Every structure is written in structure tokens, then in C-alpha cells.
Amino acid sequence: MSFETVKAHFEKWNREADIMEFETSSATVEQAAATIGVIPARIAKTLSFRGEEDQAILVVAAGDAKIDNKKFRKTFNFKARMLSPDEVLEQTGHAIGGVCPFGLANDLKVHLDISLKRFDTVFPACGSTNSAIELTCDELYEYSSASQWVDVCKGWEEESHEVAAIAGKQSGS
């Protein structure tokens, strides 16, 4: 049912036909990247945290990014505590492996991490363990009704510097 809710969500922009369904699982970053044929960093993973007053907040980040607890606390003024699988399903309407910021069961705050901005397009899940859609960062922001871009992740910066250095060498810089 979660997949159908997401599909209905994308009807507002006439993008429901752009949702990809796969024969294989795309439940983890690695599985999604292999199935789609992209590097894991381009998978837009949705992380669910316990917010204030039992309201979850979602952070969508690049597949190679990890939450930086200090940055998270500084940004949101509370400790990063992930939801249990049951809480994720209750708050978002999506089971682990298909969690996305679309077609949510509750009106949750969605935040996009800047780790995504280094890509022209990213691939968030679409409510099931075998679906995704390719979106630009601007489309992701609009379709998810994101409240803001945040900088709450680590681990991806090193890779982007390495990629930039390699790209510089390849172009003769």
C-alpha cells in the first residue's frame, strides 16, 4: 500500500510513470545502487529520527553519508535518536527498505542534507523495497516539501575531495 501512496503523491506532478519498479531488491543503499547501476552515494536514503513531542523528523542524505551527532545536535537542538522499525512504519507509513519523504502517513518535517547537492540527480526509494525515482535536487526538495537544506552528515566530504582531485587530474588541471 505504501508504494501506491507514493505513486498517488507523484500524480500531482504527473511523475507517477517515472517511478521505477525492480525485479530485485533495492532495500539497502548497496542493493539500490547495484540494481539502478549507479554509485551508492547517488542513492538518497531517508533516515527517521525521534523529534520533539513524539513527532518524527526525516533527513534525506547521500548513500555514502553518515549522521554526524555533533552537527545534528547543533542543527536540531536535540540528540539524534533513530526510530525503531515499528516506529518508522507508524510515523511514515513506509517499512524499512522503502522509506522515502513522499506519501507520508503523517505530516513530518523533511530535511535534505547537503551531501546530495554534489549530484545532478539522485535516486530516493518510493515506498517499497524494490522501487526508486530519479530526481534532481530541486525536484527532491519540491516533491518532498522539504523545510530546509541542512549539514548534519559526515563521511562523504572526503570522497568528494578525492573525486574532485581525480577529475582534476583527468582534465589536465
Rank of each mutant, 00 (worst) to 15 (best):
Ala41Gln: 13
Cys100Ile: 05
Ile67Lys: 00
Ser26His: 02
Leu47Trp: 02
Leu108Val: 14
Ser131Trp: 01
Val163Gly: 05
Phe78Arg: 04
His94Leu: 06
Ala80Met: 06
Lys12Tyr: 03
His161Asn: 09
Lys70Tyr: 01
Ala105Arg: 13
Phe102Ala: 09
Cys153Lys: 00
Val150His: 01
Asp64Lys: 09
Ala8Cys: 10
Ala65Lys: 01
Lys117Ile: 06
His94Gly: 03
Leu112Cys: 10
Cys126Lys: 01
Leu108Pro: 06
Val152Cys: 09
Gln31His: 12
Ser171Tyr: 13
Glu4Val: 05
Ala165Met: 14
Gly63Ser: 08
Ile43Gln: 04
Ala146Glu: 07
Lys74Arg: 15
Lys71Trp: 00
Glu134Gln: 11
Gln148Arg: 14
Gly93Asp: 06
Val29Leu: 13
Lys71Ala: 07
Ala146Lys: 05
Phe76Gly: 01
Thr24Glu: 13
Glu159Arg: 12
Asn69Gly: 06
His94Gln: 04
Val110His: 03
Arg118Ser: 12
Trp149His: 11
Lys79Ala: 11
Glu90Phe: 08
Gly98Ile: 08
Gln31Tyr: 05
Asp86Asn: 13
Gly155Asp: 06
Ala105Pro: 03
Leu135Ile: 07
Thr24Gly: 03
Ser131Met: 06
Thr24Met: 06
Ile57Asn: 03
Val59Met: 08
Trp156Ile: 11
Thr129Pro: 02
Ile57Asp: 02
Glu139Cys: 10
Thr35Gly: 08
Gly127Asn: 09
Leu89Tyr: 10
Ile43Ser: 05
Arg50Met: 10
Asn77Tyr: 01
Met82Trp: 00
Arg73Lys: 14
Lys109Arg: 10
Phe76Cys: 02
Thr92Gly: 08
Ala33Glu: 10
Glu53Thr: 11
Val59Gly: 04
Glu23Thr: 15
Val150Asn: 04
Lys7Gly: 04
Thr92Gln: 02
Phe3His: 08
Trp149Thr: 03
Arg15Ala: 14
